[in-house]
Computed example of a mutant assay.
Amino acid sequence: MNFSKLLCLVLVYSQQLGQVLANETPECNGNIAGTAVPCNGKKGGALQLKVTGGLSNTETVAKWQKGTGDIAAGNKYTMAGKDLTIKTLDVPDEGEYKATNVSPEEKFEVKVVDCLGSKTSTPAMCKGKKGDSIKLGLSDGTVSSISWKKGTEKITADTTKYPGGVTEATLTIKNLDDEDEAKFTGGTNGEGESFSVQVAPVCLSSDASCVGKLSRDLVLKVEGPVGAKVTWEKDDTPLTDQRYVKSGTNDKELMIPNLVAPDAGTYKAKYGENTVPFTVSIPGPGGSSTTKKPTTTSGSGSVLSYSPALLVTVTLVHLLLQLAA
């Protein structure tokens, strides 16, 4: 087994572990005060709404509504006793939910966020990309006197940068840039739950080179409209690994998550008769990097050159040797 394959194996198992941890279902407890409880759920994940009071008329299963429409168990919802689980959350799932056969009715106001806060000493990792927006959400939105901090400084109202306000259980950060890479905290007086925001650089097809950082994300983006679906290659090999995230119109963007040394190389975006190359380099600890500007061609025939820097930590070496044994 060669070095590159071993690294890929490590990445696969690390990614699977991360997905298992990310798939834990947060819970949101209702109350009997009649007001809607704020409940934040992570986009793509699940959220469980839990009734705290008793069911009326000796019933054993809660009846639920979203808005004024009844909810039935199925691909989107799971009902168990008094609880409702919303699966694969997305923006259309936002709104008011209520258990109707509870006296009094219990209501939940669901919002979908990109990242849920952490109450532990390790901040929640929140990844966005340059120029985009990201929404942070408190896992407990019931706390009082909510405010937010960036680093140690309290965030003040700024509708351009924080369009959703700075006193709610969610914080939207617009037009992400390098200055937004920081630790954010939110809760009572700006304390309680923490977030570590990372902003992935976006490498455009007109850039001379794409310089990434180890263990960080990098986004490759074809500029302008593309009239056909884009297929991506690395070193003339199609990218089929689910680790890569394609997005944008006709898959014109490619995100490479958690960069490792073998990710350096030549990437090509192909659509119709066009081939758009990207040269990705990953500097070593000394910051050295050698790249040449790629040549964009229509059809085939692009010539590229790169010189990736390799960095292997002692811990990773031991791990790879164990895998190879």
Rank of each mutant, 00 (worst) to 15 (best):
L55R: 07
K82F: 11
L89C: 04
T60R: 13
T100N: 01
G69Q: 12
G54W: 09
T52N: 11
L49E: 06
I86Q: 11
Q65N: 14
A80Q: 10
G41S: 01
A73F: 02
G44W: 03
K82P: 04
V61M: 09
K50F: 07
A72E: 12
Y77W: 04
D93N: 15
A80F: 10
L84R: 03
K63I: 10
T78K: 08
K82D: 08
T68V: 10
G74I: 03
Y77R: 00
V51H: 10
L84Q: 03
L84P: 06
V102I: 13
Q65T: 10
G67V: 05
K43S: 10
T58S: 15
T60Q: 12
A62E: 03
G44M: 03
Y77M: 05
D70V: 13
G41F: 01
K63D: 12
D93Y: 06
T100R: 02
V102D: 03
G81K: 02
N101V: 01
T68K: 10
T60C: 08
G45T: 01
L55G: 05
G74F: 02
D90K: 14
G95P: 10
G41D: 00
W64E: 09
K76W: 06
G53P: 08
L84M: 05
G95N: 06
L47N: 02
D83K: 03
S56G: 14
L84W: 04
K42Y: 01
K63C: 09
L55V: 06
G67I: 02
T85Q: 12
G53R: 09
A72G: 06
N57Q: 15
W64P: 00
G54Y: 08
P92L: 09
N57R: 14
L47E: 02
G44R: 02
K76R: 14
T60I: 13
L84I: 14
Q48M: 11
G95W: 08
T58V: 09
K63V: 12
W64G: 00
A72D: 12
I71T: 00
